[in-house]
Design a protein around this nucleic acid. Structure first.
Lengths: 268, 268
DNA sequence: CTTGACCCTCACGTAGCGTGAGGCCGGAGG
DNA sequence: CCTCCGGCCTCACGCTACGTGAGGGTCAAG
């Protein structure tokens, strides 16, 4: 049995189901004067006539197109408004928002990649930037070890915004630092000497800017790894024989100079 | 002269300009506990330290990716949250919104087309649906005459949502009506007879459902045009000789029966 | 007369701030 | 010392388009 469509009109609930909107929406449109029911029962029930429903239907259509209620009101009430022009403006807005969202999506993709791979570079680019002795597996290993730590997150967020050129610049800076370390050792500066201290602090600054904030405690742990990890040790000793040990000792000495016992330092 | 970066930290204004956000945003993030300044002067000024700025920067990045503040809070504070998973969820949201907006855009395009051309059918489709005697220029003429009137707007909005199949159904209904009109005239029913009145009301209902709400006053004007416009007259007289005049008279008679003087009726 | 479905009017909550209002602080000039 | 201007502070309401109850009448059926 269909609803007894009394000739007077439909109640809010009936109108709402016919239009596919909520009762509250109809109430709201009533409140702001966008669409009032032209009839009502003596007890205050709203009754929507066929003409009311036509207007409501137009509202629903324009609302589905993403127009704001005030713009809809203008279109419906002000016959002077240029409807196609208003629609074209809205079309432009939609296009703009789509483009913006697509950029957001691309940024998210980069960020996801950064979190999952650590480096946003192809293997070819990695070799070109970090040199032939770079092993592409290292970033995967680093990810396995540090994934989930705040440091990894910070690193991932930064690397998501880095272009190959910026990676190149980082690699150059690092290579510069390696050279300086080798020259200092070669020149006879010992761990603990002012020159060595300066270089250790320079390493901390460069590292913090390139990867993530490095405390002196963390730097101590890193130095130990440089010496004990075969790959890292080979890298530094490749610059100058004995450099891995010299650098670790310099870091330890610098930490001691800042009141830290390198033998109890932890990564935190 | 750069700002005197007092070692303690930056004031809100300085932090805001560095981060590219407003002061109010920083206040807001403070209010909801997302990012508090860890220092403050005795007089209550906020001072943001370097660590604070790091956190703020991360917030800015994630906010630019479209994440909500609560989600950002989870990522920053709760090391247990799976960051890539959260990002992928967000990526899906963005993709969904893009698709939705693209549908909106398509709907807007249809609506704009409908307002500007009146019919969303190719000339071929028009001929196939309305028959070989249909003249594609008619819709352009109708647009020139009625553009800007509420009736045209209603018509355009409806036709924007109509598929060729629905147009076919409308054409069929109209053809049915034409046939019935011709048969009634042929059978000798006169304008004003109950049979003729029924057909006139049927025309009004069909027309209102297919194009726009038609009052009896408007129907009278339409009937006069059917008789006087050569194209329309040819159409009806092609169904049955003399049908254009018979139909116009039937509309007039029906209007009179409803208390309307057809000679003073206006389109409104 | 009761019951359950429906209706009414407040009125607060949402996300992320914008935008004043009204008033205190800090450094420079007179 | 006073004043002035720019910067800072804390309320606190405003914005979109309703969602979601709270508390209470209304309507048709049993």
């Amino acid at each position: 049995m269909p609803e007894a469509t009394s000739a007077d009109g439909l109640t809010v609930g009936q109108a709402a189901t016919r239009l596919g909107v909520t009762i509250r929406a109809l109430h709201h449109w009533d409140e702001i004067g966008l669409a009032r029911s032209s009839l009502s029962t003596p007890t205050g029930y709203r009754l929507y006539t066929a003409a009311d429903l036509e207007r409501l239907h137009r509202i629903v259509v324009y609302r589905e197109l993403g127009l704001g209620l005030e713009r809809i009101r203008a279109i419906l009430d002000d016959s002077a408004t240029d409807v196609p022009a208003a629609l074209r403006t809205q079309r432009q807005h939609v296009a703009d928002r789509i483009e913006h969202l697509q950029q957001l999506g691309a940024g998210l993709d980069r960020m996801i990649d950064a979190h999952e791979h650590g480096l946003l570079l192809t293997v070819q680019e990695q070799t070109a930037i970090f040199g032939p002795r770079w092993n592409p597996d290292w970033s995967a290993q680093a990810r396995q070890r540090y994934e989930g730590t705040p440091q990894w997150q910070q690193y991932a967020e930064q690397s998501a915004t880095r272009s190959p050129a910026e990676w190149q610049s980082i690699a150059d800076t690092m290579a510069d630092l390696d050279r300086s370390l080798g020259e200092s050792m070669q020149a006879g500066f010992t761990p603990g000497s002012p020159e060595a201290q300066l270089l250790v602090e320079r390493h901390r600054a460069v590292f913090s800017a390139s990867y993530f904030s490095l405390t002196r405690q963390m730097q101590v742990c890193l130095g130990r790894m440089y010496e004990s990890d075969p790959a890292f040790a080979a890298h530094y000793d490749g610059v100058r024989t004995g450099l891995a040990a010299w650098f670790r000792q310099s870091i330890d000495a610098n930490a001691r100079n800042h009141g830290i016992d390198p033998d109890t330092a932890s990564w935190h």
